[in-house]
């Protein structure tokens, strides 16, 4: 190859990679600009604080905001302990050749590849029809109490969906804790569990919180898993019990986009709802990122 062709190939590749990166940023910018331009003017205090009215063509989205936040919170409470404990088992307690650990890892990878609508059906079948019915029978409810869609079942379904994210990132975080710190702790006469609690987990905390960030942003936007397990089409009341149904921003977006009698009239509402959903997800991410940065700085020892 001559010098000129080599230069041309180099230039071509630089341009190509640059374009690809630009395309990605451009798409995000396009989505955001479109949503902001069409939705921002409609996001008013009334919109944020009122339930929908006039057959979805007026009012606001307050119950959906609360529902989404409550759902995500419950999901996080459910997924973090299970995910972190699983990762701790896999990385700290299972022996390297453990067959059980190998099976768990295969299960985690496969769980991550299951389509989200399947999780929805699983939630309906397992949590509501199996666990819920069983609870009703055992607790002596004559009518359906737990054996119906509700926020608890929806959040547990989402927790199963986000479990692989938490397990994988926690295991990654545990792997990043230097072996030196473990041996130092053990050499000072700490037990394995003391080493885990006092050295390993604090060292892995930033990475564990990264897992939480990923799980939250994944879980907050998923609609398919909650379709059959708890999301309500229209419900002006806020969820008050663990078996209450709830409105959800993602599902509400779907409803507004497909079920409205007057598409033109609902369009501003739709845009505004999407904007709020995006902002909520970004805000949740931001909170987690801030917590993570703080702990990481603390772990690294701010000078």
């Amino acid at each position: 190859m001559t010098y000129t062709t080599r230069r041309a190939v180099g230039l071509f590749l630089t341009t190509l990679t640059g374009l690809a990166a630009f395309l990605m940023v451009g798409m995000l910018a396009l989505i955001l600009l479109d949503v902001i331009a069409n939705g921002a003017s409609h996001v008013t205090w009334t919109f944020l604080s009122q339930p929908p009215s006039d057959g979805m063509m007026g009012g606001g989205i307050f119950p959906a905001i609360v529902g989404t936040a409550a759902l995500t919170l419950l999901m996080t409470l459910a997924v973090m302990p299970v995910g972190v404990l699983t990762a701790v088992y896999l990385h700290e307690y299972a022996s390297p050749g453990s067959r059980l650990a190998a099976w768990v890892r295969v299960a985690v990878v496969n769980l991550a590849g299951v389509p989200s609508i399947v999780f929805g059906l699983f939630g309906l079948g397992f949590f509501i029809l199996f666990v819920g019915r069983g609870m009703d029978r055992v607790l002596g409810y004559e009518e359906m109490h737990w054996a119906q869609p509700g926020i608890l079942w929806a959040s547990l379904t989402l927790a199963v969906l986000t479990l692989p994210v938490v397990i994988v990132s926690t295991e990654e975080a545990l792997r990043a804790v230097p072996l030196d710190h473990r041996t130092a702790s053990l050499a000072l006469g700490a037990t394995q569990s003391q080493t885990l609690v006092r050295v390993v987990l604090p060292g892995a905390l930033p990475g564990i919180l990264t897992g939480a960030v990923l799980a939250i942003s994944r879980g907050a936007g998923e609609v398919a898993p909650i379709l059959f397990t708890g999301a309500a089409y229209f419900l002006p009341d806020l969820p008050s019990h663990l078996n209450s149904q709830f409105m959800h921003l993602g599902y509400h977006t779907y409803v507004l986009a497909t079920q409205s009698p007057d598409v033109e009239a609902t369009r501003p509402l739709l845009y505004a709802t999407v904007l709020v959903l995006l902002l909520l997800t970004f805000a949740l991410n931001l909170v987690a990122v801030i917590i993570r940065t703080r702990t990481r700085r603390k772990a690294a020892g701010a000078h």
């Binding site: 230097p178 037990t191 060292g203």
Partner: peptide, 28 residues
């Protein structure tokens, strides 16, 4: 290991304060 202590080739302080590093073995 509390009776037979060890110092390693590479210094390996915990990412904690100076005080907490020294206090670690006592606390556990």
């Amino acid at each position: 290991r509390r009776r037979v202590g060890m110092v390693f080739q590479k210094s390996n302080p915990f990412p904690k304060s100076i005080f907490e590093n020294v206090a670690y073995g006592l606390r556990v």
